[in-house]
């Protein structure tokens, strides 16, 4: 299902060009991408933009953004994101992050709780649960990656065609490199994050695929347990890429949570 992407805008950061896709109206939502979704406007962006002002940057090195030389760890990405919010004039947006983007969202909310309206973590990585290790996405072939990301492989193969041309694979490598820059060691997590989560003040929705084979649902339970005002929603028959695999229900749940006036 193809949707028209909004016209990208570009920002300069220390000589690097950072791309931001933005569309919709309503309260601003900073949407932080998983490592394979940067630079693309997917149906979940579109659906969400029917209710919100969706701001979707490509983090440095991902998608159409250049790498920034000083980004070496997730903490650097937090400072980058804070600067980005300042430059976009976003004082306190809602923040929605999936997988890698969920990790960044959680770190951002820990660092600057006052800058996050409401927080949504979708199958986020970042926690250090040695008994529930992350799948090693760095070692996987494209086929293995699709099998790991999706509960329903057919959905995965529609979104990520199994035998793409070389430039698609080069883009994958670019995204993986940006991801590895901050996540290779220590293995897709920040061991200190767990004890810091209690700093988060934003009402938080933790949304997880019950069949997540990359970050098992125990990670979601742990996030929901440690973030003070958090609720957990687990989607049955859904894998790691919940926003792609169950776009309609996932966006509906996020929209309802962000607009829930009773909270």
């Amino acid at each position: 299902m193809a949707v028209d992407a909004p016209e990208p805008t570009s920002l300069e950061f220390d000589g690097a060009t950072i791309q931001v896709l933005r569309a919709g109206s309503g309260e601003p939502v900073l949407l932080l991408h998983p490592f394979g979704c940067a630079g693309r406007w997917r149906p979940y962006h579109d659906l969400l933009s029917e209710r919100f002002d969706v701001v979707a940057p490509d983090c440095p090195g991902f998608g159409q953004s250049d790498p920034i030389e000083w980004i070496e760890g997730i903490d650097d990405l937090v400072y980058f994101t804070l600067e980005l919010l300042d430059r976009l004039g976003l004082e306190r947006p809602h923040v929605v992050g999936a997988s890698f983007g969920g990790w960044l969202a959680a770190e951002l909310a820990v660092h600057s709780p006052h800058r996050v309206g409401r927080l949504v973590l979708v199958d986020a990585i970042g926690l250090d649960l040695p008994d529930q290790p992350y799948a090693d996405l760095f070692a996987m072939t494209r086929e293995e990656t699709i099998a790991a990301l999706f509960h329903d492989r057919a959905v995965g193969e529609r979104v990520y065609p199994p035998d793409p041309d070389v430039e698609v694979l080069v883009q994958d490598y670019k995204d993986k490199t940006a991801f590895a820059t901050v996540a290779w060691s220590p293995l897709c997590c920040n061991p200190k994050l767990e004890r810091r989560l209690r700093r988060i003040t934003a009402p938080t929705l933790v949304l997880w695929g019950a069949e997540d084979r990359v970050a098992p649902v125990e990670h979601g339970r742990r996030y929901a347990e440690l973030i003070p005002d958090a609720m957990l929603a687990v989607f049955e028959s859904c894998g790691h890429a919940a926003l792609v695999e169950q776009t309609g229900p996932a966006v509906e749940a996020i929209g309802e949570f962000l607009q829930d006036v009773s909270r």
């Binding site: 694979l169 670019k174 490199t177 991801f179 590895a180």
Partner: peptide, 22 residues
């Protein structure tokens, strides 16, 4: 050896990986 093992992310430049994949 597995291609993904031989070419971990960032081990080669984008030109390098393009050459490796072509």
């Amino acid at each position: 050896m597995k291609f993904e093992h031989l070419m971990p992310p960032g081990y080669v430049s984008l030109d390098g990986i393009r050459a490796g994949l072509s």
